[in-house]
Protein backbone atom coordinates (compact mmCIF):
# COMPACT_ATOMS: atom_id res chain seq x y z
CA UNK A 1 0.00 0.00 0.00
CA UNK A 2 1.27 3.44 -0.88
CA UNK A 3 -1.11 5.50 1.24
CA UNK A 4 -2.95 4.25 4.32
CA UNK A 5 -5.36 6.50 6.19
CA UNK A 6 -6.97 5.21 9.38
CA UNK A 7 -9.74 7.04 11.20
CA UNK A 8 -8.36 10.51 10.61
CA UNK A 9 -10.30 13.42 12.11
CA UNK A 10 -9.44 17.08 12.06
CA UNK A 11 -11.26 20.10 13.45
CA UNK A 12 -10.67 23.81 13.17
CA UNK A 13 -12.26 25.41 16.22
CA UNK A 14 -15.89 24.27 15.99
CA UNK A 15 -15.77 23.17 12.36
CA UNK A 16 -15.14 19.50 11.77
CA UNK A 17 -13.15 19.45 8.52
CA UNK A 18 -12.54 15.69 8.48
CA UNK A 19 -14.65 13.19 10.34
CA UNK A 20 -13.18 9.72 10.80
CA UNK A 21 -11.75 9.21 7.33
CA UNK A 22 -10.18 5.90 6.29
CA UNK A 23 -8.86 4.84 2.90
CA UNK A 24 -6.07 2.88 1.21
CA UNK A 25 -4.29 3.51 -2.05
CA UNK A 26 -2.17 0.71 -3.59
CA UNK A 27 1.15 1.59 -5.22
CA UNK A 28 0.93 2.85 -8.78
CA UNK A 29 -2.75 3.69 -8.58
CA UNK A 30 -4.46 6.85 -9.80
CA UNK A 31 -6.78 7.65 -6.91
CA UNK A 32 -9.35 10.43 -7.03
CA UNK A 33 -10.80 12.33 -4.10
CA UNK A 34 -14.02 13.78 -5.47
CA UNK A 35 -16.08 16.41 -3.70
CA UNK A 36 -17.14 20.06 -3.67
CA UNK A 37 -15.28 22.96 -2.10
CA UNK A 38 -15.30 22.78 1.66
CA UNK A 39 -15.64 18.98 1.70
CA UNK A 40 -12.28 18.61 3.47
CA UNK A 41 -10.14 17.63 0.47
CA UNK A 42 -7.39 20.17 1.07
CA UNK A 43 -7.24 19.32 4.77
CA UNK A 44 -6.65 15.66 3.95
CA UNK A 45 -3.93 16.63 1.46
CA UNK A 46 -2.21 18.79 4.03
CA UNK A 47 -2.33 16.01 6.61
CA UNK A 48 -0.87 13.49 4.16
CA UNK A 49 1.87 15.91 3.07
CA UNK A 50 2.76 16.46 6.78
CA UNK A 51 1.66 20.09 6.75
CA UNK A 52 -1.07 19.55 9.34
CA UNK A 53 -1.39 17.22 12.30
CA UNK A 54 -4.63 15.28 12.61
CA UNK A 55 -6.59 15.44 15.86
CA UNK A 56 -7.24 11.73 15.76
CA UNK A 57 -6.22 8.75 13.70
CA UNK A 58 -3.06 7.68 11.92
CA UNK A 59 -1.82 7.70 8.36
CA UNK A 60 1.23 6.61 6.44
CA UNK A 61 2.67 7.41 3.04
CA UNK A 62 5.03 4.85 1.43
CA UNK A 63 5.30 3.24 4.84
CA UNK A 64 6.33 6.41 6.67
CA UNK A 65 4.20 7.72 9.50
CA UNK A 66 2.90 11.22 8.76
CA UNK A 67 3.73 12.47 12.25
CA UNK A 68 6.94 10.65 13.25
CA UNK A 69 8.62 10.34 9.85
CA UNK A 70 7.55 13.65 8.36
CA UNK A 71 11.06 14.36 7.12
CA UNK A 72 11.20 11.13 5.12
CA UNK A 73 7.82 11.85 3.59
CA UNK A 74 8.95 15.32 2.56
CA UNK A 75 11.81 13.67 0.70
CA UNK A 76 9.68 11.18 -1.19
CA UNK A 77 6.52 12.95 -2.26
CA UNK A 78 5.67 15.58 -4.84
CA UNK A 79 2.99 18.11 -3.96
CA UNK A 80 1.00 20.53 -6.05
CA UNK A 81 -1.19 22.68 -3.79
CA UNK A 82 -4.60 23.96 -4.81
CA UNK A 83 -3.67 27.39 -6.01
CA UNK A 84 -0.90 28.08 -8.48
CA UNK A 85 2.10 28.07 -6.16
CA UNK A 86 5.15 28.94 -8.17
CA UNK A 87 7.23 32.07 -8.28
CA UNK A 88 5.54 34.44 -10.70
CA UNK A 89 8.62 36.62 -11.04
CA UNK A 90 10.87 33.72 -12.00
CA UNK A 91 10.98 32.32 -15.51
CA UNK A 92 9.69 28.87 -16.38
CA UNK A 93 13.19 27.45 -16.42
CA UNK A 94 14.27 29.21 -13.22
CA UNK A 95 11.29 27.83 -11.38
CA UNK A 96 12.03 24.31 -12.54
CA UNK A 97 15.73 24.63 -11.77
CA UNK A 98 14.98 26.02 -8.31
CA UNK A 99 12.77 23.09 -7.39
CA UNK A 100 15.29 20.64 -8.81
CA UNK A 101 18.04 22.23 -6.69
CA UNK A 102 16.19 22.22 -3.41
CA UNK A 103 15.45 18.55 -3.89
CA UNK A 104 19.12 17.94 -4.55
CA UNK A 105 18.76 16.99 -8.21
CA UNK A 106 19.02 18.61 -11.63
CA UNK A 107 16.64 19.07 -14.53
CA UNK A 108 18.87 16.93 -16.72
CA UNK A 109 18.89 13.99 -14.30
CA UNK A 110 15.12 13.48 -14.36
CA UNK A 111 14.32 15.05 -17.68
CA UNK A 112 12.84 11.78 -18.99
CA UNK A 113 10.08 11.90 -16.44
CA UNK A 114 8.91 15.38 -17.30
CA UNK A 115 9.83 15.48 -20.99
CA UNK A 116 6.32 14.68 -22.09
CA UNK A 117 4.88 17.64 -20.17
CA UNK A 118 7.78 20.03 -20.28
CA UNK A 119 8.24 20.03 -24.07
CA UNK A 120 4.88 21.79 -24.34
CA UNK A 121 6.09 24.73 -22.27
CA UNK A 122 9.78 24.61 -23.19
CA UNK A 123 9.32 27.14 -26.01
CA UNK A 124 8.40 29.63 -23.30
CA UNK A 125 11.16 28.72 -20.88
CA UNK A 126 12.40 32.30 -20.64
CA UNK A 127 8.97 33.72 -19.93
CA UNK A 128 8.06 34.72 -16.37
CA UNK A 129 5.67 32.21 -14.83
CA UNK A 130 3.22 34.99 -13.98
CA UNK A 131 2.63 35.61 -17.67
CA UNK A 132 1.71 32.05 -18.64
CA UNK A 133 -1.85 31.01 -19.45
CA UNK A 134 -3.78 28.89 -16.96
CA UNK A 135 -3.10 25.63 -18.76
CA UNK A 136 0.62 26.32 -19.10
CA UNK A 137 0.95 27.33 -15.45
CA UNK A 138 -0.57 24.04 -14.50
CA UNK A 139 1.89 22.11 -16.68
CA UNK A 140 4.79 23.99 -15.15
CA UNK A 141 3.51 23.30 -11.64
CA UNK A 142 3.23 19.60 -12.48
CA UNK A 143 6.76 19.57 -13.91
CA UNK A 144 8.06 21.19 -10.72
CA UNK A 145 6.24 18.68 -8.54
CA UNK A 146 7.72 15.82 -10.59
CA UNK A 147 11.29 16.97 -11.03
CA UNK A 148 12.65 15.01 -8.07
CA UNK A 149 11.04 11.76 -9.20
CA UNK A 150 8.62 11.39 -6.28
CA UNK A 151 7.14 8.01 -5.41
CA UNK A 152 3.79 9.58 -4.60
CA UNK A 153 2.32 12.63 -6.28
CA UNK A 154 -0.27 14.72 -4.41
CA UNK A 155 -2.31 16.99 -6.68
CA UNK A 156 -4.86 19.15 -4.90
CA UNK A 157 -7.50 20.35 -7.39
CA UNK A 158 -5.07 20.68 -10.28
CA UNK A 159 -7.85 21.37 -12.79
CA UNK A 160 -9.98 23.89 -10.92
CA UNK A 161 -10.59 27.02 -12.97
CA UNK A 162 -8.94 25.45 -16.00
CA UNK A 163 -10.88 25.18 -19.24
CA UNK A 164 -12.14 21.79 -20.47
CA UNK A 165 -9.44 21.43 -23.13
CA UNK A 166 -6.55 21.93 -20.72
CA UNK A 167 -8.31 19.69 -18.22
CA UNK A 168 -8.53 16.87 -20.68
CA UNK A 169 -4.87 17.22 -21.63
CA UNK A 170 -3.94 17.25 -17.97
CA UNK A 171 -5.70 13.97 -17.29
CA UNK A 172 -4.03 12.39 -20.30
CA UNK A 173 -0.68 13.40 -18.80
CA UNK A 174 -1.62 11.83 -15.49
CA UNK A 175 -2.51 8.58 -17.22
CA UNK A 176 0.93 8.48 -18.85
CA UNK A 177 2.67 9.30 -15.56
CA UNK A 178 0.96 6.39 -13.95
CA UNK A 179 2.88 4.11 -16.30
CA UNK A 180 6.07 5.28 -14.57
CA UNK A 181 4.97 3.55 -11.35
CA UNK A 182 4.09 6.77 -9.58
CA UNK A 183 1.15 6.68 -7.18
CA UNK A 184 -1.09 9.65 -7.90
CA UNK A 185 -3.52 11.04 -5.33
CA UNK A 186 -5.64 13.71 -6.95
CA UNK A 187 -8.64 15.75 -5.89
CA UNK A 188 -11.24 17.48 -8.03
CA UNK A 189 -14.67 19.05 -7.73
CA UNK A 190 -15.51 18.00 -11.31
CA UNK A 191 -17.45 14.74 -11.18
CA UNK A 192 -16.87 13.98 -14.87
CA UNK A 193 -13.13 13.67 -14.19
CA UNK A 194 -13.75 10.89 -11.70
CA UNK A 195 -14.27 8.38 -14.49
CA UNK A 196 -10.57 8.53 -15.36
CA UNK A 197 -9.38 7.31 -11.93
CA UNK A 198 -8.74 3.69 -10.92
CA UNK A 199 -10.56 4.21 -7.65
CA UNK A 200 -12.41 7.17 -6.27
CA UNK A 201 -13.58 8.34 -2.87
CA UNK A 202 -16.62 10.60 -2.80
CA UNK A 203 -16.26 13.11 0.00
CA UNK A 204 -18.57 15.77 1.37
CA UNK A 205 -18.76 17.67 4.67
CA UNK A 206 -15.66 15.90 5.96
CA UNK A 207 -17.12 12.42 5.49
CA UNK A 208 -16.38 9.83 2.86
CA UNK A 209 -19.58 8.68 1.19
CA UNK A 210 -18.16 5.75 -0.72
CA UNK A 211 -14.91 4.35 -2.09
CA UNK A 212 -15.05 2.22 -5.20
CA UNK A 213 -14.10 2.08 -8.86
CA UNK A 214 -15.98 4.60 -11.03
CA UNK A 215 -17.99 1.71 -12.50
CA UNK A 216 -18.75 0.36 -9.04
CA UNK A 217 -19.92 3.78 -7.91
CA UNK A 218 -22.32 4.06 -10.83
CA UNK A 219 -23.57 0.52 -10.36
CA UNK A 220 -24.36 1.23 -6.72
CA UNK A 221 -27.07 3.71 -7.67
CA UNK A 222 -30.17 2.24 -6.03
CA UNK A 223 -32.92 3.53 -8.32
CA UNK A 224 -33.92 3.45 -11.94
CA UNK A 225 -33.15 6.75 -13.59
CA UNK A 226 -35.07 8.49 -16.38
CA UNK A 227 -34.28 11.45 -18.60
CA UNK A 228 -37.19 13.84 -18.87
CA UNK A 229 -37.60 16.82 -21.13
CA UNK A 230 -40.22 19.30 -22.24
CA UNK A 231 -40.20 22.77 -23.74
CA UNK A 232 -40.65 24.58 -20.42
CA UNK A 233 -37.69 23.58 -18.29
CA UNK A 234 -38.41 25.69 -15.23
CA UNK A 235 -42.03 24.56 -15.06
CA UNK A 236 -40.88 20.98 -15.58
CA UNK A 237 -38.59 21.17 -12.54
CA UNK A 238 -41.40 22.60 -10.45
CA UNK A 239 -43.99 20.10 -11.63
CA UNK A 240 -41.65 17.15 -11.10
CA UNK A 241 -41.01 18.46 -7.60
CA UNK A 242 -44.74 18.27 -6.94
CA UNK A 243 -45.26 14.86 -8.61
CA UNK A 244 -46.22 12.18 -6.11
CA UNK A 245 -43.91 9.49 -7.50
CA UNK A 246 -40.79 11.66 -7.47
CA UNK A 247 -37.81 10.59 -5.39
CA UNK A 248 -35.52 13.18 -6.94
CA UNK A 249 -35.43 15.40 -10.01
CA UNK A 250 -32.26 17.22 -10.95
CA UNK A 251 -31.36 19.09 -14.12
CA UNK A 252 -28.62 17.35 -16.15
CA UNK A 253 -27.79 19.30 -19.24
CA UNK A 254 -30.87 19.71 -21.37
CA UNK A 255 -32.70 16.90 -19.53
CA UNK A 256 -33.95 16.37 -16.02
CA UNK A 257 -32.73 13.22 -14.27
CA UNK A 258 -35.79 11.80 -12.60
CA UNK A 259 -35.81 8.93 -10.11
CA UNK A 260 -39.12 7.44 -8.94
CA UNK A 261 -39.85 6.57 -5.34
CA UNK A 262 -41.54 3.32 -6.24
CA UNK A 263 -40.53 0.29 -8.29
CA UNK A 264 -44.06 0.26 -9.72
CA UNK A 265 -43.31 3.44 -11.70
CA UNK A 266 -44.33 3.45 -15.35
CA UNK A 267 -43.12 6.07 -17.83
CA UNK A 268 -46.58 6.53 -19.32
CA UNK A 269 -47.87 7.69 -15.90
CA UNK A 270 -45.34 10.49 -15.88
CA UNK A 271 -46.01 11.42 -19.50
CA UNK A 272 -49.70 11.59 -18.69
CA UNK A 273 -49.04 13.75 -15.62
CA UNK A 274 -46.92 16.17 -17.63
CA UNK A 275 -49.50 16.40 -20.41
CA UNK A 276 -52.11 17.26 -17.83
CA UNK A 277 -49.83 20.07 -16.73
CA UNK A 278 -49.71 21.49 -20.24
CA UNK A 279 -46.19 20.39 -21.18
CA UNK A 280 -45.40 19.86 -24.84
CA UNK A 281 -42.69 17.90 -26.67
CA UNK A 282 -42.43 15.56 -23.71
CA UNK A 283 -39.60 13.02 -23.68
CA UNK A 284 -39.23 10.35 -20.98
CA UNK A 285 -36.78 7.46 -21.30
CA UNK A 286 -34.60 5.34 -19.08
CA UNK A 287 -30.87 6.07 -18.80
CA UNK A 288 -27.84 4.93 -16.81
CA UNK A 289 -26.68 6.74 -13.67
CA UNK A 290 -23.59 8.95 -13.63
CA UNK A 291 -21.16 9.43 -10.77
CA UNK A 292 -22.84 12.73 -10.07
CA UNK A 293 -26.21 10.98 -9.67
CA UNK A 294 -24.68 8.66 -7.09
CA UNK A 295 -22.95 11.54 -5.32
CA UNK A 296 -26.21 13.43 -4.98
CA UNK A 297 -28.12 10.33 -3.91
CA UNK A 298 -25.54 9.59 -1.21
CA UNK A 299 -25.11 13.12 0.07
CA UNK A 300 -28.82 13.87 0.17
Amino acid sequence: MSIIVKNISKSYKQVKALDNISLEVPSGELFGLIGPDGAGKTTLFRILTTLLLPNEGTASVTGYDIVKDYKSIRNTVGYMPGRFSLYQDLTVEENLRFFATIFGTTIEENYDLIRDIYVQIEPFKNRRAGRLSGGMKQKLALSCALIHKPKVLFLDEPTTGVDPVSRKEFWEMLKRLQEQQITIFVSTPYMDEAALCDNIALITNGKILRIDTPEGIKASFPHKIYKVKSTKTFKLIQDLGAYEQTHSAYPFGEYIHFTPNTTAFRTQDLTHFLKENHHTNIEVFETGPTIEDTFMELSD
Partner: peptide, 13 residues
Protein backbone atom coordinates in the same frame (compact mmCIF):
# COMPACT_ATOMS: atom_id res chain seq x y z
CA UNK B 1 0.47 34.11 0.77
CA UNK B 2 1.47 32.67 -2.60
CA UNK B 3 1.26 29.14 -1.26
CA UNK B 4 4.88 28.45 -2.16
CA UNK B 5 5.67 28.08 1.55
CA UNK B 6 3.60 24.89 1.43
CA UNK B 7 5.84 23.48 -1.28
CA UNK B 8 8.99 24.57 0.51
CA UNK B 9 7.80 22.89 3.70
CA UNK B 10 7.03 19.68 1.80
CA UNK B 11 10.60 19.52 0.53
CA UNK B 12 13.85 18.29 2.01
CA UNK B 13 14.85 21.89 2.67
Amino acid sequence: ELGTMEILLVSPL
